[in-house]
Design a protein around this nucleic acid. Structure first.
Lengths: 106, 106
DNA sequence: TCTTTCTGCTACATAAAATGTAGCAACTGT
DNA sequence: ACAGTTGCTACATTTTATGTAGCAGAAAGA
């Protein structure tokens, strides 16, 4: 059972890792934040701009959460993906290619 | 430029398909709904139960949206993934495997 | 040293989104 | 005719996100 302190258990009643992950990624801006950090490290403010000016309140909330989940870290160069975060976004990459075909088909 | 009627343009100012997709997938329950439909087709109510009793209001909203995006369809056997939805969730599958390692590492 | 300009972050009122519960109309099977 | 489905809607309450302002600390320049 995966239990994250201060985290909702919505969609996690089974405790199956995938459910927990889908729950986390399904939070507004989380996916986008990971995507942006996958492009490059960024300071809080830069990241905020890149995320279409998402509110700092929420950005901070998400970043705190992603750090506690060991997907994101913070150093002198600002925020970036941890090794784990990197491996996740790498697996998410094929979806980027898929999106092009999908958009054409729409 | 991809424009979806009645859809927020949050995170879609560039109109890049991936941004639109991240925006859609980043909506609460969307990812989970796709995941559940990837397991098998289901009626509205069955799907609702599988999604930990998500409110029918929201479930319907998401399903409508996913149908307009050509990711989900509805037939006599209830809701299910379209061909497009299938190809998306297939690309999402590696993330399921990843989640196990991630959970162990937490 | 004294600004200026970054940094990450917080407070708080407003607005938007999600929940929970009840129930409707249409169809299916007995 | 009746019971049990189906997909779905209404609506009041609660939760979440937005937008704006601004604080405290570090670094860089004059």
């Amino acid at each position: 059972m995966v239990k994250i302190p201060g985290q909702s258990t919505r969609g996690s009643r089974t405790g199956r890792p995938i459910m927990v992950l889908l729950d986390v990624l399904g939070q507004r801006w989380t996916l986008r934040i990971l995507w942006e950090l996958h492009q490059s490290r960024a300071s809080f403010r830069t990241l905020q701009e890149r995320c279409d000016g998402v509110s700092p309140t929420l950005l901070n909330k998400r970043l705190k959460n992603l750090r506690s989940l060991n997907l994101v870290d913070l150093d002198k160069d600002g925020y970036g993906l941890s090794a784990m975060g990197q491996s996740l976004t790498e697996r998410l990459a094929p979806v980027g290619a898929w999106a092009k075909d999908w958009a054409d088909q729409l």
